[in-house]
Design a binder for these strands. Structure first.
Lengths: 112, 112
DNA sequence: ATATATACATAATTTACTTATGCATAAATA
DNA sequence: TATTTATGCATAAGTAAATTATGTATATAT
């Protein structure tokens, strides 16, 4: 992930959401998908992505399945049951964050 | 700042926006204002706030003026000229971040 | 008398990145 | 044919921005 410092903390949410939509994906595929969806706005770096995937796996939110395609390795990740639940949590957290920030930065504030 | 990890990276933007609206504020006042606006959702911690204010001052984005009120110190901060410019930048960065994240997490993606 | 609110500050630690590097194969290009 | 670019993984070192834990001091409420 390069670009704005604001993206810090969002990577896990992005990964979970991708897997929630696509059922099963491998790391490199995620970087390309995000680049495509955000029109190049957000580029996930490998140094951020792979450790994040390992962590989610260690926490039991993801399962892995290794495949060999065109003589190259691919590690396909998919959500576990608790991964599905956590996706819901993370998404509502994000929604909430966005609402809170919009309240804070809307012109002239919302509560005045 | 406690709560969600998503808020990481937002503090500077929040401070600048507060000062952009209120002309001049002191640290403690900011924590109370944010608590009020977000209905307790976001609590800025002192360990995050004061170093952030010092950094913004060091970068020339804020000016300070010390006052004594009720026998207690208050350090009033206000935006410098370049602080005003940076506020604009940070706010459009935030807007952009929110749009990007909404594209990523909107149900079933926006570009499919 | 004691706790809570007001008001600042900093040090130690943690977390989540970036940047840099490494390995390996396939395809495109000079 | 040599070299770069794309595909695909991984990790180590360094950095930024928090959290958590303290510390000081005064005023007010219980």
């Amino acid at each position: 992930m390069s670009n704005s410092k604001l993206y810090k903390g969002s990577l896990t949410t992005i990964i979970l959401k991708l897997l929630n939509e696509s059922d099963k994906m491998y790391g490199y595929e995620m970087t390309q998908k995000v680049k495509q969806i955000t029109k190049g706005e957000l580029n996930i770096t490998e140094g951020a992505l792979y450790p994040a995937l390992h962590k989610l796996e260690a926490e039991g939110l993801l399962d892995v399945e290794v495949q060999k395609v065109d003589n190259r390795l691919r590690k396909y990740y998919k959500l576990t049951e608790s991964g599905v639940k956590e996706t819901t949590n993370k998404l509502s957290e994000l929604e909430n964050y966005i609402k809170t920030m919009q309240a804070l930065v809307s012109p002239k504030f919302s509560l005045e």
